[in-house]
């Protein structure tokens, strides 16, 4: 339809005057004029960081003097730094959030997909954490995690915790405490995506299976879940990449790797090298590059695991 439309419109352009060539040149100029402001900012703030960032990883640079090529020195320094390894390990640990958040989000989506009275309220309520800033929810949760705070009361009430110590003050639990906040904030987001996925699955198919005597769990495993596969691919990809790039929640809740440097992530390491006082932009860029490579690898693994999101698999 579009192709046909275009052909007609070109004929019309001939009719209103102008030769074919001049119309095309003029059209091209107009088209680029429309896109120019967008493209300039895109190149400056999106393309340039990818190019210049990759270059910086092989230089010594502190903004004041021009970058100096140092080859692989930054990477050598990086891999010799225990702090970086600990950050990278934490970023990989953070990927544990992915399966948990996806399973819970699918279950929640199934729950709020039921035609119950007042279900709109629950959908809205679950989405509220998504629209609030990590600056705010990070602060709120660090209050809730305080000694004698709400989280500890609940955990001790359930008998899951002895001794009233803040989870954020303990190097063994701090990272997991922040992970829980990531989970809490992300469920609503993925729930909405899974809801959209569920709405794309044919009702008739599920009903037909039920009439033919399939049980609820059979319908779920054989129709609903395969139908959700494309959504699962997209969601787990998004959530894996953001897990490896985890930064904001740690920045707010456990600044500077608190406690005892136990909560550095790979990206936070990069951040601290650039903005932590020594302006080592080369090393920071090298660390960012490692994070980028790791997130691409994990993206590919993810793609394989979900069989490319094909719903017929």
């Amino acid at each position: 339809m579009t192709t046909k439309g275009r052909r007609v419109s070109r004929r019309e352009q001939h009719r209103i005057g102008g030769t074919g060539a001049s119309v095309t040149v003029r059209n091209t100029l107009i088209a680029y004029a429309f896109m120019l402001p967008f493209l300039i900012l895109l190149v400056v703030y999106h393309t340039w960081p990818v190019i210049f960032g990759s270059y910086l990883a092989f230089t010594k640079y502190n903004i004041i003097s021009p970058p100096q090529w140092v080859g692989l020195d930054n990477f050598r320094e990086l891999f010799a730094d225990e702090q970086f390894w600990s950050g990278l390990r934490n970023s990989l640990k953070y990927v544990l959030v992915v399966p948990v958040i996806q399973v819970i989000s699918i279950l929640v989506a199934l729950l709020v997909n039921r035609p119950l009275r007042g279900i709109g309220f629950f959908r809205t309520a679950y989405y509220v954490p998504v629209v609030t800033s990590f600056a705010v929810v990070g602060l709120i949760w660090s209050w809730l995690y305080k000694q004698g705070g709400a989280v500890n009361s609940v955990l001790m009430g359930l008998g899951l915790m002895r001794g009233d110590h803040s989870l954020l003050d303990n190097p063994a639990t701090a990272l997991f405490a922040v992970m829980f906040v990531t989970l809490w904030k992300g469920i609503g987001y993925y729930m909405v995506l899974y809801l959209a996925g569920l709405q794309g699955i044919s009702r008739e198919l599920e009903e037909a299976a039920t009439i033919d005597g399939a049980t609820r769990s059979q319908v779920f495993w054989n129709i609903t879940l395969p139908g959700l596969r494309p959504t699962i691919l997209v969601c787990s990809l998004l959530s894996t990449i953001s897990a490896i790039k985890v930064f904001e929640e740690l920045y707010v809740m456990t600044p500077n790797g608190y406690p005892a440097g136990s909560t550095y992530s790979a990206l936070m390491y990069s951040f601290s090298k650039a903005f932590g006082g020594d302006f080592n932009f080369g090393l920071a860029a090298a660390a960012s590059m490692v994070v980028a490579v790791v997130s691409i690898l994990f993206g590919l693994i993810n793609f394989r695991l979900t069989k490319g999101g094909r719903s017929d698999a």
Binding site: V50, A57, K245, S270, V291
Partner: peptide, 12 residues
């Protein structure tokens, strides 16, 4: 991947 975005955009 745009992990270096924060750093390079700061320089820019």
């Amino acid at each position: 991947p745009n992990e270096a975005g924060l750093i390079v955009n700061y320089i820019t």
